[in-house]
Simulated assay, not measured.
Amino acid sequence: MVVTDMDGTLLNSQHEVSNRFFELFQALKEKNILFVAASGRQYDSMVAKLEAIKDDIIFVAENGALVKKKNHTLCSTPLEHQYIKQVLDLISPIPNAHPVLCGANTAYVNGASLAFIELLKEYYTAFSPVTDQYAVHGEIMKIAVYHDESSERNIYPQVAHLEDKLKVKVSGAHWIDISHPDAHKGHALAKLMQTYGVGSHELLVFGDYNNDLEMLELAQFSVAMENAHQNVKKTAKYHTTSNDDLGVERVLEKLLRS
């Protein structure tokens, strides 16, 4: 099984998947190697990037809160509703912070933040502007918060105390994700390994940020991108080139040659 993060890993800085990857995927498929895309993105946004192979792969979306194959839900771990108001109360006073309530089928964003909505279109293909996020009902997979400057410096210190009851992950330079304690990529991947009978010695995992740490720890073959966070570089057993220098593709070529 090959598992890769999306942004900063499989996707280049222009948020594109290379043609070379799609060629290598066909070779993996011919050798009966399962492929899993694991991302903080919503499911629809992941599918949009991997449309050509969407029926042949497994999607771990929303940082592990939602796992789907051929549009069929394999695993769902929503955030308990009691925490949504608490998180929104903590985020609201932070300047330049934009919370996104991520449902299974759509995301709910403050409709007054027009500039942020334009930015959001890269990461969310299905979203609904609302006037009051407190009034949103239904299952929420996670709360993603974007900060204009740095999520690690400006948001994490304000929500770090929630880590005793929730999963709090800095998932990118501008993003932090807050979810159910079991809603992380490692938990989702462990379930997939059990379902498909894949051992750690049969697992190749790529990542670049802190929300990839748990799944990297499961693999005998864990790979950090050159552009990865230092925590990822310390955790991964191997390193590759950056996401702009075909880092994932270079390792897959070696795997296929072996």
Results as ranks from 00 to 15, higher is better:
29 K>F: 09
168 V>I: 10
93 P>H: 11
8 G>D: 04
1 M>H: 08
173 A>C: 02
153 R>A: 13
77 T>W: 12
158 Q>K: 14
83 Y>H: 14
94 I>W: 12
13 S>I: 10
56 D>K: 12
95 P>Q: 11
177 D>V: 04
229 H>F: 12
166 L>E: 05
49 K>T: 06
141 M>A: 00
47 V>M: 04
94 I>K: 12
7 D>T: 09
235 T>L: 07
63 N>G: 10
102 C>P: 04
73 T>Q: 05
24 L>T: 09
92 S>V: 01
96 N>Y: 13
218 L>W: 01
244 D>S: 07
196 Y>P: 08
66 L>K: 03
94 I>H: 12
164 D>A: 11
150 S>F: 00
27 A>L: 15
101 L>I: 10
216 L>S: 07
221 F>L: 09
181 P>H: 07
178 I>W: 02
125 T>D: 11
162 L>H: 01
190 A>S: 03
208 D>G: 05
90 L>I: 09
162 L>Q: 01
70 K>C: 04
149 E>A: 01
29 K>P: 04
234 K>E: 00
145 V>A: 06
234 K>I: 03
105 N>K: 14
71 N>F: 00
37 A>I: 14
31 K>F: 02
94 I>Q: 13
74 L>W: 06
182 D>M: 10
232 V>D: 04
86 Q>K: 12
23 E>D: 12
31 K>D: 03
155 I>W: 04
28 L>S: 08
104 A>C: 05
188 A>W: 00
215 M>A: 06
80 E>T: 12
30 E>H: 03
184 H>A: 00
106 T>I: 08
207 G>D: 11
151 S>M: 00
236 A>K: 09
148 D>F: 04
140 I>W: 08
53 I>F: 10
159 V>Q: 02
119 L>T: 13
193 M>V: 03
146 Y>G: 01
257 R>C: 08
164 D>F: 04
38 A>D: 04
53 I>T: 06
164 D>N: 14
38 A>Y: 08
161 H>D: 07
43 Y>V: 04
25 F>Y: 15
257 R>L: 13
154 N>I: 00
62 E>N: 15
32 N>E: 15
40 G>K: 14
37 A>R: 10
162 L>S: 00
168 V>C: 02
216 L>F: 07
60 V>N: 09
51 E>P: 03
51 E>F: 08
208 D>L: 08
240 T>G: 10
112 A>V: 15
98 H>S: 14
73 T>N: 01
155 I>G: 06
63 N>W: 13
144 A>N: 10
242 S>K: 08
249 E>W: 06
57 I>Q: 12
64 G>T: 09
216 L>N: 09
175 W>Y: 14
175 W>H: 04
10 L>T: 13
96 N>E: 15
190 A>Y: 02
256 L>M: 14
52 A>K: 06
227 N>L: 06
9 T>R: 01
65 A>K: 12
6 M>V: 15
240 T>R: 05
192 L>S: 06
225 M>A: 05
235 T>R: 03
51 E>I: 07
239 H>N: 13
36 V>D: 15
245 D>S: 05
119 L>D: 12
64 G>H: 11
163 E>G: 01
157 P>N: 02
73 T>P: 00
80 E>G: 05
49 K>M: 10
216 L>G: 07
202 E>C: 07
114 L>Q: 14
34 L>E: 15
255 L>E: 09
47 V>N: 09
39 S>K: 10
249 E>H: 03
149 E>V: 03
77 T>V: 15
116 F>A: 06
213 L>F: 01
